[in-house]
């Protein structure tokens, strides 16, 4: 076993995702405290350019092969298993993203390593690893301590600064061949599907009126559309609204939707699950209206209103009209 910290890099459409730099920044701090090295692990096809961007790491272990050009839960977990088996890092940081979810738990079982998920912080003091997880829809944090020597931590995107993970240094790159086990895959990547164009682009709007489960019914959407119109903005939504098909996928803010930074984000009936916060916390002005005084959204909003959201929305529309 080593004292090293490994960061599993994530990339999509030829770019490293921000979360990769966030993990490199945090990983640097952990590795320094553990007197270990920081190692980036990059899987893909034709990814030399991406290797070079990971200068915060002392070294990048790279499997660059056309067979793994696209993410595949089966091939990627098999590749990572070989890498982690060979190097036995103390801590492995994985993004708690769509891709990372398919990897972290897989590695935990196959390598018999503890996993702490939904991490928003991690520390290494005197060799002891402590991890803070955000659970219960962001309503509770739980601090876990590692009992054994090694662990996997899956980290919620947006938890750390991505600037801390960037560096002009050029890391040493160790090229590794893909494992033989890739010949026997039970999952095949078919294609990447891009979102349908044609709808408004919510990432380009100054004003978003964003609606969540609290609006209760599709029938209440027109009232909120009226408010959005009166403000000169458009409607966006949290995941449950889109899952219910009340608004199209193009309007979804959050982890599996879009990241937005409008001048005004008026969150109506959105409780603020971590997956949603990830997509809107950088808005310039956040005003939240919710009936639950304990809704996590109030931790991120600049202004908050606890009360009947339809009363407030009605009054706002009325006054804007007049």
């Amino acid at each position: 076993m080593s004292q090293d910290v490994f960061v599993i890099a994530e990339h999509l459409m030829g770019n490293l995702e921000d979360v990769t730099f966030e993990l490199l920044g945090k990983g640097r701090e952990l590795a320094d405290n553990l007197d270990g090295s920081l190692v980036g692990v990059l899987l893909g096809g034709g990814v030399e350019d991406l290797n070079r961007q990971m200068g915060k790491a002392d070294k990048v272990i790279c499997i660059d092969h056309e067979q793994i050009a696209e993410f595949n839960p089966d091939s990627y977990s098999k590749c990572l298993m070989e890498v982690l088996k060979t190097h036995e890092p103390k801590v492995t940081l994985v993004p708690n993203t769509s891709m990372g979810m398919d990897l972290a738990a897989a590695l935990s079982v196959d390598l018999d390593l503890p996993l702490v998920a939904y991490a928003v912080d991690a520390s290494a003091k005197n060799g002891t690893i402590a991890v803070t997880s955000q659970l219960y829809g962001g309503k509770m944090n739980v601090e876990s301590r590692l009992e054994g020597d090694r662990c996997i931590i899956s980290v919620i995107a947006g938890s750390f600064s991505s600037e801390d993970g960037k560096s002009d240094n050029v890391p040493e790159v160790e090229e590794v061949s893909p494992p033989d086990s890739l010949t026997d895959l039970k999952i095949r990547f078919k294609r990447l599907i891009e979102p349908e164009a044609g709808d408004v682009d919510i990432t380009q709007q100054d004003i978003l009126v964003s609606v969540g489960r609290g609006i209760q019914s599709e029938d209440n959407l027109p009232v909120l559309q009226k408010l959005a119109d009166a403000l000169g903005g458009v409607l966006s939504a949290s995941r449950p609204i889109v899952d219910n098909k009340w608004l199209p996928k193009t309007r979804q803010v959050g982890k599996s939707g879009l990241k937005v930074k409008p001048k005004l984000y008026l969150a109506v009936g959105i409780s603020g699950a971590p997956e949603h916060i990830e997509g809107m916390k950088d808005a310039e002005l956040i005003i939240a209206v919710n009936s639950d005084p304990n809704a996590p959204i109030f931790d991120y909003a600049h202004y908050g209103v606890v009360g009947d959201l339809f009363d407030v929305v009605g009054q706002l529309s009325e006054k804007l009209k007049g």
Partner: peptide, 27 residues
């Protein structure tokens, strides 16, 4: 492989400034 040390509500020190009053006042 890990044990829970403590559970706590996330800090709200830099939370929202609350707007109070009737719906009209709030608007």
């Amino acid at each position: 492989g890990t044990t829970v040390q403590r559970m706590f509500k996330p800090e709200t020190s830099d939370g929202a400034q609350m707007i109070e009053g009737s719906a009209e006042d709030v608007a």
